[in-house]
Amino acid sequence: MTKKVSIKLENEQKLINDQELQQFKNHYQGDFYLKNQKLYLSYQDDAEGIDGAQTILKIDPSQERVLLLRQDPAAMKQDFSSGSKKPGYFKTAYGEIKLAVKTKSLVMELEAESGLIEIDYQVYLGGELNAEHRLKINYKVVN
């Protein structure tokens, strides 16, 4: 059964060659559902340059893993698994950029009507550390 949710995303990003910390906060309305023992959050991402791309978060509490998939026009895959470095990609108008995500910590507080996911991770481009991120996802079922 699909439920409507309010989703709050907060992302702190620090590029390795830049001392400035960038912060992004976004709010979305989306869907929440359970399928094959995994939780799913789905929403239209309206951040600049993304043009309403469908984004899905696949949350697997038993494997302590979160998979972020975004469709075109700004397709992206990031695979978060605590202590692991996983391949991913980001597609731009100029082509696909291969990346890797190393998850330093992944904390999930999941309940029937709400949840909090916090991910500290590093992004590698061309094998080199590019940025440090802290992603915080809050969701709550709305009636």
Rank of each mutant, 00 (worst) to 15 (best):
G49K: 03
K86I: 07
V123F: 01
Y139Q: 01
Q22W: 06
K8T: 11
Y40N: 04
I117Q: 10
F24N: 09
K8C: 05
Q13I: 15
T103K: 12
Y28T: 06
V66E: 10
I50C: 04
E109H: 08
Q19T: 15
K38A: 13
K77Q: 13
K91V: 15
Q29C: 00
V5C: 01
Y94G: 02
L15K: 08
T103C: 07
L110Q: 03
Q122C: 05
H133G: 02
K86H: 15
A74C: 03
A53D: 11
A75C: 09
F80D: 14
E12G: 05
N36W: 01
Y43W: 01
Q63S: 15
E64Y: 06
K136L: 06
Q23G: 07
L110D: 01
L67I: 12
K140G: 03
V66P: 10
P87L: 02
M1P: 00
M76G: 04
K140D: 03
E48D: 10
E132W: 11
E64I: 15
H133K: 11
T92L: 03
L99N: 15
Q122W: 09
D79F: 04
D31N: 12
G30V: 01
P61I: 09
E118H: 05
V123D: 09
N143K: 10
K102P: 12
Q71F: 02
K3G: 00
D120G: 08
N26Y: 09
Q13L: 15
I97S: 05
N143G: 11
E10A: 03
Q23R: 15
S6P: 07
N26S: 14
N11S: 15
E132G: 01
Q37V: 00
P73L: 07
K35A: 10
K35G: 00
K98S: 15
D46H: 11
L9A: 10
Q19G: 15
G126L: 10
I50F: 02
Q37W: 04
K25M: 04
K4Q: 05
Y28S: 03
S114P: 00
Q44G: 03
Y121S: 08
V107M: 13
Q63D: 12
K3T: 00
H133W: 05
D45M: 04
D51Q: 06
G126Y: 04
E132S: 09
S6R: 06
S62F: 01
S81T: 14
N11L: 13
E118D: 15
Q54W: 07
A74Y: 08
I7Q: 02
T55D: 00
Q63K: 11
K25C: 11
S84L: 14
S114Q: 12
